Amino acid sequence: MMTNLFSIFDPSTNIFYMPLNWISTFIGLLFIPYSFWMIPNRYYFFWNFILNKLQNEFKTLMGNNSNGSSFIFISIFTFELLNNFYGLFPYIFTSTSHLTLSLSISLPLWLKFMFYGWINNTQHMFIHMIPQGTPGILMPFMVLIETISNIIRPGTLAVRLTANMIAGHLLMTLLSGTGPSLPMYFISLLIVIQILLLILESAVAIIQSYVIAILSTLYSSEVN
């Protein structure tokens, strides 16, 4: 039972020993040609409106030191959002439900922040490890706590996204698996519940993409 349940997250499905499931990550490339149309359509205006709002918010969080780096976080938001939504469609592999993908995004991003901060703003990084007003006797403990909390940041970013994507998919799979054994008058109730869960998962896909982008922006603003 558990093997069948978690098989929806199995990335090992292949054809001629080629892991074609991961190709679903690049479906977003199909949307790029829309931005090159001579006459923009409604999809272009809608997506451009969202990206402009995000850029203004990221620039506000990062202050005057953004220097165009907000586009990195907009790209992360777009990539995460599209891949989260792909998993809601039948027969499309949910790549963001694996630490392989989410950690490969958060870890290099965090390392970049750390290298930039310790090389260019060393004094600021040391000051940031001890909050203002901390008693002298507590300073060693605060340095230890801040160091640990800083080290686990890429892991928390990756696990947060992975756990949220797995939880909803598992719940929908569990409920749908009980369908054949239910009486006919319970099937309609099950369908309504599944539709509500699908709406909830759509909201989770948007919220988690936004949270990942916002937290990455806040982490980058701390090293400036």
Rank of each mutant, 00 (worst) to 15 (best):
F9L: 12
S12C: 05
Y17R: 14
L20Y: 13
W22E: 06
G28Q: 11
G28P: 02
I32C: 11
M38W: 08
F49T: 15
I50S: 11
N52L: 12
N64I: 07
N65D: 07
I76K: 06
I76R: 00
I76Q: 06
T78R: 07
E80F: 13
N84T: 09
Y86T: 14
Y86E: 11
G87H: 01
L88K: 11
F89L: 00
F89Y: 14
P90C: 06
T94S: 13
T96W: 00
T96I: 08
L99M: 09
T100N: 05
S104P: 07
L107Q: 10
L107G: 03
P108A: 02
L109C: 03
F113S: 02
F115N: 11
I119C: 01
I119T: 13
N120E: 12
M125L: 02
G133W: 03
P135F: 10
M139F: 00
I148C: 00
I148T: 14
R153G: 02
A158C: 11
V159C: 06
R160C: 02
T162N: 07
A163W: 12
S181W: 14
Q194C: 03
Q194D: 15
I195Y: 01
L196A: 10
L197N: 04
L198A: 07
I199H: 13
S202L: 12
V204E: 04
A205G: 07
A205R: 00
V211A: 08
A213E: 10
A213D: 06
S216W: 05
Y219W: 05
S221Q: 10
S221R: 04
E222Y: 12
N224H: 13
